[in-house]
């Protein structure tokens, strides 16, 4: 299964970025072999609509779940429409997040956890 984790830098040891739309990177991880491909988030400096654009990027990777700190309403709507599960409130490193996910310790989030623009100045 492919999962996406918001990350503040490249690689599996980088910290989880608490923001979704304005996250620096997305760590795209295959849970079968823990192979991690870090892709930069093009929406990080977008004038507007970062959550939607970031969600589209995730959709195109084929990920079935997103692990992040917070998720705004536009991002949540887009991810849900694409059938991607959201796990918010995740912290620590990307590696720790993957382990927690595999161990079934994360709870699926059913909607946005913050208002629009929450991560803009974060």
């Amino acid at each position: 299964m492919i999962i996406a984790i918001t990350a503040s830098a490249e690689g599996i040891d980088s910290p989880v970025d608490p923001r979704f739309g304005r996250a620096a990177y997305f760590a795209i991880v295959d849970t079968e072999n823990d192979q991690c491909n870090s892709i930069p988030n093009e929406a990080v400096s977008a004038a507007a609509g970062a959550g939607v654009t970031a969600a589209k990027t995730i959709t195109d990777t084929g990920a079935q779940a997103v692990l992040t700190g917070n998720c705004g309403p536009n991002a949540a709507r887009t991810l849900q429409a694409a059938g991607i599960k959201i796990y918010a409130g995740v912290s620590g490193t990307v590696k720790e997040a993957i382990e927690a996910f595999k161990a079934g310790k994360l709870n699926e989030t059913q909607g946005p956890t913050v208002e629009s623009h929450f991560g803009t100045n974060g």
């Binding site: 004038a47 609509g49 959550g51 939607v52 654009t53 589209k56």
Partner: peptide, 11 residues
């Protein structure tokens, strides 16, 4: 074409 994320095509 949308520069503002106002329309998104998900397939």
């Amino acid at each position: 074409v949308c520069q503002y994320g106002a329309i998104v095509h998900l397939g």
